[in-house]
Amino acid sequence: MLIYHPIHDVNHCVYRLLLILETTQHSTIDIDLYRIVDFYTIFPSLLKNIKPFPAELSAFKRVLKEIPDPYERLTNVKRTMHELEPIQTTAIQNLLAKNIIDLEAFRARKLERTDTKLPQEIAVGLRESVLVNEEWFRMLINEFPTISFTGRKGLKARTGLMEFRYDVEPV
């Protein structure tokens, strides 16, 4: 039996990356933060598992409760995150090759959209995506970048998706 899941689809990852870059309020996004945002774009119900949930985002707790639990169960989210990384890297490289992501920003471990125009069909598809109207998605792309990312109290530690023990603690 053949089962499809967007986590293994590079083209779907390119779509998610474009969706994030086109709809965020921020001009750049850190690559590691992008990886976490992309993970939660695929598995939004896991946002409920962020412990402790950032106090700055407490207004969104109501929204998270409304996200239905999925049919599938992830037994090891850290491993799933690790398996997603090469797909995300390929998606980033595809957009770099098309000059849709800025190379200099990428060298600084950031993702920044260039002025390159997207084909009309893709641009319309991104604007009309159901995710754009989801409050939890807007929280991911607009509020997550404002939260401390590194250290024991950062998003890496709170989500449990990335190693944080060797991070330099923010001052």
Rank of each mutant, 00 (worst) to 15 (best):
V124Y: 03
R107P: 12
L46A: 11
R79Y: 09
H12A: 01
R79H: 13
T90I: 05
E72F: 05
P145I: 03
F43I: 01
S45H: 15
I101S: 09
P52Y: 05
E56M: 12
K117A: 11
D102Q: 15
P68N: 13
T114K: 08
N94R: 13
Y71W: 15
F137M: 00
R35A: 05
I92D: 08
R35E: 13
R62I: 12
N49Y: 09
E56N: 11
D38N: 08
E135M: 10
P86F: 09
P145R: 11
K117H: 11
I31M: 05
R113M: 00
R109W: 15
R127T: 01
F144W: 09
E22R: 14
L17T: 04
T116C: 08
L57F: 00
E56G: 11
P145S: 06
P54Q: 02
E143K: 12
R107G: 09
M81N: 04
Y40I: 07
T146F: 04
I141T: 07
D38R: 15
I147C: 07
P70I: 00
L46F: 09
F137I: 00
F60Q: 04
H82G: 06
T114V: 00
R35W: 04
D30T: 04
L19K: 12
A91E: 01
T23W: 14
F137D: 00
L74T: 03
V14R: 02
P52A: 06
R107N: 12
E56V: 07
F144D: 05
D102A: 13
E56F: 12
N76F: 10
L126S: 02
E22N: 13
G125S: 10
A55K: 10
F43C: 10
A55G: 07
F144G: 05
R79Q: 14
Q93F: 06
L96V: 00
S58K: 14
I100Y: 13
P86V: 01
